[in-house]
């Protein structure tokens, strides 16, 4: 396609994925602007347009009031990319989905006020058709570039479907379990390059599960090798994959 018109939109999120876009440095970012035209981006600009080639949407679908805004973006965009975990899987926002009292817990006696309407946190694909996803919390800014680059060149981006463990092996990171810790990289979708175990913390599957994860085996390994108590082992994967667990499907 010729220099595509790209817009950025945000829903329930921390807006950290759009901040990642400012971290490329001068040369790479200015080069990116040679290949795409950023025409709409509320956090960064006041301009707006009618038609978009690519809409990049950040954040989760958490209330009916946001459905029409999503539908309008869809209607004027050729391609919709859900970027970041909140948009792609609902990520951390879904950590409250299993609770029934979250409104009362946070808002107390005001919990029933109409503007505090918030149902389960869902990926934006629950409201509109999504063509591509950039996973991760935060998204990997270079993976974002890679997907945009594929689209600009008319190619299909490759989405990995193997676990984070493979990336730890590749970069020779000592397994968290060998360090007396726990980890859920064995069921987490790779593509990030496994930065967290390399930084000394467990993978918490911010990119979601691989297809067909073995959740029973995960709980067993967390208890037997990770020494987590039963309750922690059973709830560990709520951190970023609450919507993908069997109990939520």
């Amino acid at each position: 396609m010729s220099k595509p018109k790209v817009g950025f939109f945000d829903f329930a999120s921390c807006e950290g994925c759009q901040i990642e876009l400012t971290n490329f440095g001068d040369a790479p970012f200015l080069e990116l602007l040679n290949h795409i035209e950023i025409v709409e981006f509320r956090e960064a600009m006041s301009e707006t347009v009618d038609q978009l080639d690519i809409a990049c949407i950040e954040g989760s679908f958490t209330r009916e009031a946001d459905r029409s805004r999503l539908e309008k973006i869809r209607a004027r965009s050729k391609i919709v990319i859900a970027y970041g975990a909140c948009a792609a899987t609902a990520g951390i926002n879904a950590l409250k989905n299993h609770q029934s009292d979250y409104k009362k817990n946070v808002y107390g006696k005001d919990a029933d006020m109409p503007h505090l309407d918030s149902t389960k946190a869902l990926p934006i694909s629950a409201a509109i058709k999504v063509d591509y996803q950039v996973l991760g919390c935060p998204m990997d800014k270079y993976e974002f570039l890679d997907i945009i680059s594929h689209l600009v060149h008319g190619k299909e981006p490759v989405i990995h479907d193997y676990p984070v463990c493979m990336e730890c092996k590749r970069r020779e990171t000592i397994c968290r379990y060998e360090q007396g810790d726990h980890c859920i990289g064995q069921v987490a979708r790779a593509g990030c390059g496994a930065p967290c175990p390399a930084d000394g913390i467990p993978c918490e599957a911010c990119r979601g599960f691989v297809s067909d994860p073995n959740e029973e085996a995960l709980v067993k390994v967390l208890m037997e090798k990770g020494k987590l108590p039963k309750n922690r082992a059973e709830t560990k994967s709520r951190m970023f994959t609450a919507n993908m667990r069997r109990d939520a499907r």
């Binding site: 329930a12 958490t62 951390i92 409250k96 609770q99 979250y102 817990n105 946070v106 808002y107 918030s118």
Partner: peptide, 9 residues
């Protein structure tokens, strides 16, 4: 802004 309920999470 859409509320997100972190204290509950």
């Amino acid at each position: 802004e859409a509320p997100r309920f972190f204290e509950s999470m």
